[in-house]
Amino acid sequence: MTEANPPSRPLDVDSTAVNWKLTGVLVALTAIALFVLDPRSVFAITEVMIFVLFASALNLVLSYSGMVSFGHGVYFGLGAYGIALTVARFDWPIWAGLMAGPVLATIAGLVYGFLSVQLTFIYAGMLTLACAEVTFGIAHQWFSFTGGESGITGYVVTRLGLSPEMFGLTVLIVVTVSLLLLWRIVHSPLGLVIRAVGENPMRAGAMGHNRKTIQLIAFTISGFFSGVAGTLYGVFHGNVFPDYVGAQFTLDGLVMVLLGGLYSFSAGIYGAVIFKLADNIVSHYFELWELVIGIILMSVIILSPAGIAGYVNRLLEHLRRRTHA
């Protein structure tokens, strides 16, 4: 089979330095919103933040490492299972459970990632799907340990007993720190190698970078941050169900990243915010929000493959030129 040359990707326009001003403003605005708005909105914002982290972690794999993952729900869900199982089954203290979530997700990322990087593109993607379904099967069938379909509930006090505002603030801090770390990773020498492998594995290989090793590192890192998001989600709701590792969360994550726009760091942020807004607002007035998402997705791809992040970046660039001129 022949394949056309991979089309050139839109150049990454984001610069290396963290835009502290923008970050500060966004974090401050979110924090204020948490304390000003009604509880329902606080609830929604917290959930959006958790998914921003999940989508950004998935974005590391999709946009930069040149891999696909059809099973990222696993690492998210295992974050929640990590704390639920250790606390409910092994009587670990809460703080240890909080550590166990991301650790379990990282281990899963390492193992499944190791298997998947042996293959390329679509076969690797299918293997991540197969691994995910096996995990889902275990979570779903092993009643005595994972609680089967009814999951595990009540292993921690919902939100660790914090008020919605304080828990929202905690999530905000964790997510912000995680995103800054992810940003550092993407723009570190390691991040450059990950991107090089993602864009042209042959050329990167000629420079002495092993595709499998580099992709595995990226996948594991992504697993870790997905696990952090999943742990937050588990604590947020105080429960865990097999669905958390299932196909729906995987699909939601994929849709978020693709909506936000591939090959941009902010894809996860825009994607998650818009996806969850559509979920919360559109579904409130209009039952068919999946239809809306589907149509938005189609139009984004066909009209502007760089996604929403592409639009915003272009707008920012335009404004920057304006102010400098």
């Binding site: 699909l251 994929l254 849709v255 693709l258 999946e290 239809l291 998402i293 589907g294 149509i295 997705l297 189609m298 791809i301 066909i302």
Partner: peptide, 8 residues
């Protein structure tokens, strides 16, 4: 595009 097709 195919996933969007699924949703629609």
């Amino acid at each position: 595009v195919t996933i969007a097709g699924v949703l629609i």
